Amino acid sequence: MKSDMLLAAAEALPASRADTPAAAGPVLVGYGAVEELARFATDSRWAVHVPGHPLEVRRAIQHAVRRGDRAYVHVSGASNAEPRGAGEGFELVREGLDGVVAAVGATLDPVLRATAGLDLTVLYTATVRPFDEVGLRTAVLAADHADVVLVEPGEPGLSARYVARTLVHVPHRLLSLGGADALDEAALGRAVRDFLR
């Protein structure tokens, strides 16, 4: 079975032609390559996108090609039911006061189900680099508790240092979740509830 996310990437990538000059920056697509995601996420020369829906895949690739960005687009087999994140940075999905959950890419739907009934702010992004420091700081300062749960499809802690740098002057607690647990609604729910106690 072919992934809708992978098909979206294939459709969005421009066809290379010998008579067309190369773009200013390459756009690379990785399918389920967690090691590559970690490598590009540590290289400040690259924009890194982790779309959570086929429409977001197309949008990220087309935007990067148009701007001539050096971009890495991480595509996985999982996707959210609806597209989000029309812009770069964090999008406010739900407001709450007990803390902030930042969901990346296809982790959003499991995060929303796992945190239903909890008084938490939920943020979403399909772009992890550059990291949206302003969006995260704004959400954390608006909450009663500076407790942050970071949920990413890659290895846990992929963006933890960016959260720490963003909140360096804000006493906070951070829980980083990733890998298989990032898409497991039950595991997410348990981890978030244990962290908030």
Rank of each mutant, 00 (worst) to 15 (best):
A78W: 14
V73R: 13
V170W: 10
A191E: 04
V34C: 08
A146D: 05
L174K: 13
T166I: 00
V65C: 13
T121K: 12
V149K: 02
A182K: 08
T127E: 04
V134C: 01
V73S: 06
G178D: 10
A186E: 14
L141M: 14
A81K: 06
A126L: 09
D194T: 13
D144R: 15
E82F: 03
P156I: 11
V73D: 05
A102E: 11
A146P: 11
G99T: 04
D184E: 10
A103R: 03
T20S: 14
A164S: 13
R94F: 00
F195M: 04
A102C: 11
E91S: 14
K2S: 15
L150M: 13
L112Q: 15
D181I: 06
V149A: 13
G32A: 09
D132G: 10
E185F: 01
N80W: 10
L141G: 14
L167M: 09
V100L: 13
D43H: 07
S76K: 07
G179V: 03
G77Y: 07
R58L: 07
G25M: 00
V93W: 08
H74A: 14
L55C: 08
S16Q: 14
A187Y: 02
A143I: 05
V170F: 01
F195T: 11
V111C: 07
V100Y: 00
